Simulated assay, not measured.
Amino acid sequence: MPIVLLVQAPAPETQKIEALIKAIEALQGQALFLRNGSEHDAKAAGDHLRLKWKNAGKRVQSAADFIRYCGTGSSLSGQPYRIRYKDGREVTSADFLWTELKRLDPSIK
């Protein structure tokens, strides 16, 4: 009897979270990620967000949870994460991620 391996497709929410992180990483060369008073490039920001997501465990059940628990600010300092574009304009990572999530899923208000 042959062995059949069933591979479960990633949940749509997991795909959305990964898309949000990739949107941050796509800013490489265009913006810096500001965290706890330090500047980080987009790749480092993506790595950090994936680590926070992993450490959050079951608290993150949706892309919205990811934004709330992982993408908005430092759990150590309480400071919000910010994105600074080359032109000097800054936005909070929360605003960036919510805008991106609404683009990915127009049913989110």
Score class of each variant (00 low, 15 high):
50 R>H: 12
43 K>F: 15
10 P>W: 11
99 T>K: 08
43 K>C: 10
84 R>M: 12
50 R>C: 09
15 Q>I: 08
81 Y>Q: 13
77 S>Q: 03
87 D>R: 04
80 P>R: 12
36 N>K: 02
91 V>L: 14
34 L>Q: 02
89 R>H: 13
31 A>S: 09
71 G>V: 11
6 L>P: 08
27 L>E: 13
4 V>C: 12
66 F>D: 09
38 S>L: 08
71 G>H: 05
18 E>C: 03
93 S>W: 04
49 L>I: 13
41 D>Y: 06
34 L>R: 03
69 Y>C: 00
93 S>Y: 02
82 R>Q: 12
98 W>C: 11
90 E>F: 09
66 F>H: 07
27 L>W: 07
25 E>N: 06
27 L>Q: 02
29 G>M: 02
82 R>F: 14
12 P>T: 13
75 S>M: 12
95 D>C: 00
28 Q>V: 00
55 N>A: 09
4 V>W: 05
94 A>F: 03
47 D>T: 05
87 D>M: 07
26 A>Q: 10
94 A>M: 09
67 I>V: 15
56 A>V: 03
54 K>W: 15
58 K>I: 02
9 A>V: 05
62 S>C: 06
97 L>H: 06
69 Y>L: 09
100 E>D: 03
21 I>E: 00
51 L>F: 03
31 A>Q: 11
39 E>W: 00
36 N>P: 08
44 A>I: 05
53 W>S: 01
68 R>L: 14
11 A>S: 13
48 H>E: 15
65 D>W: 00
87 D>Y: 04
75 S>Q: 12
92 T>R: 05
92 T>N: 10
75 S>I: 02
17 I>W: 00
61 Q>M: 06
68 R>E: 13
95 D>I: 03
85 Y>C: 05
48 H>N: 14
82 R>V: 06
48 H>D: 13
5 L>E: 14
63 A>E: 11
56 A>C: 04
30 Q>C: 00
45 A>V: 06
28 Q>N: 11
39 E>S: 08
61 Q>T: 10
27 L>D: 07
90 E>G: 09
9 A>D: 15
5 L>K: 14
31 A>L: 09
33 F>K: 04
54 K>D: 12
88 G>D: 11
64 A>L: 14
75 S>V: 05
86 K>E: 15
16 K>V: 08
65 D>Y: 00
